[in-house]
């Protein structure tokens, strides 16, 4: 613990309508968790749809899952977990006032996000190339699809990975903003709530991928 360099100037970070730093910190944290609930419900509703249709058309979903390359999904899972680790570490480093290292950790996190997106990009373009478009645009002749409604599987695939990818991009944007502020010296052992907030968001993105990976690539 290196909380010894506290000075009272830090309380200048407390907004006017809060009494003290504790109240502000607790409020901020609660707000973030509330927002995460909306994320869970949003993704969860698609998962509910996925679950229902998977149950109705197991063979079709199995055919769809076989078209995906689990190795890419596997690599992406590892990349995201590693980025989650660096994100968590960055907060801990800021709490210990090791700002430079924290900035490094944040930069690595952004890099991991970028790697994830690049792999995703190649996955998607490959699928397009093969004719696996979503829904009714799926090229039945080119893909030799056995099930007439295979497009629905890819509908789910693109919706889920697309929405997730969008979150990765938003997360990368937010972390870039954090990185700039970290380098500028805005964060320290008495003020890190934005880092923690974005961190929780980033972990949620990771968490969702942890479920998407077996759901889309492995189960069939």
């Amino acid at each position: 613990m290196s909380t010894d360099n506290i000075t009272h100037t830090h309380s200048a970070h407390v907004s006017h309508h809060f009494k003290d730093a504790t109240q502000e910190y607790d409020s901020g944290k609660q707000g973030i968790w509330l927002f995460m609930v909306t994320e869970i419900l949003m993704f969860g509703a698609v998962l509910v749809g996925y679950g229902i249709f998977h149950h109705l058309y197991p063979a079709m979903f199995s055919e769809g899952a076989k078209q995906l390359d689990w190795k890419l999904g596997f690599i992406n899972t590892l990349v995201l977990i590693f980025s989650s680790f660096t994100m968590a570490i960055s907060i801990q480093l800021i709490q210990r006032n090791q700002i430079k290292k924290a900035a490094m950790a944040l930069a690595v996190t952004i890099l991991c996000g970028a790697i994830f997106m690049v792999i995703k990009y190649f996955e998607w373009t490959h699928k397009f190339h093969m004719g696996f478009y979503p829904g009714r645009f799926l090229d039945m002749a080119k893909t030799h699809a056995e099930h007439a409604n295979l497009g629905m599987y890819f509908g789910f695939y693109y919706c889920m990975t697309g929405l997730h990818g969008l979150h990765v991009l938003i997360g990368m944007g937010l972390i870039t903003w954090l990185l700039i502020r970290t380098i500028r010296g805005d964060f320290h052992s008495q003020y890190w709530i934005p880092v923690e907030g974005v961190g929780i968001f980033w972990h949620i993105v990771d968490l969702i991928w942890i479920f998407l990976f077996p759901l889309l690539y492995l189960v069939g």
Partner: peptide, 24 residues
């Protein structure tokens, strides 16, 4: 303590490493 001073619970780096390893 002064409520204006935050006393975060700082987890050791080793814990993060262990969890990451478990996830891998």
């Amino acid at each position: 303590h002064d409520p204006n001073v935050l006393h975060p619970h700082i987890s050791p780096t080793s814990m993060y490493l262990k969890v990451a390893a478990a996830l891998f």
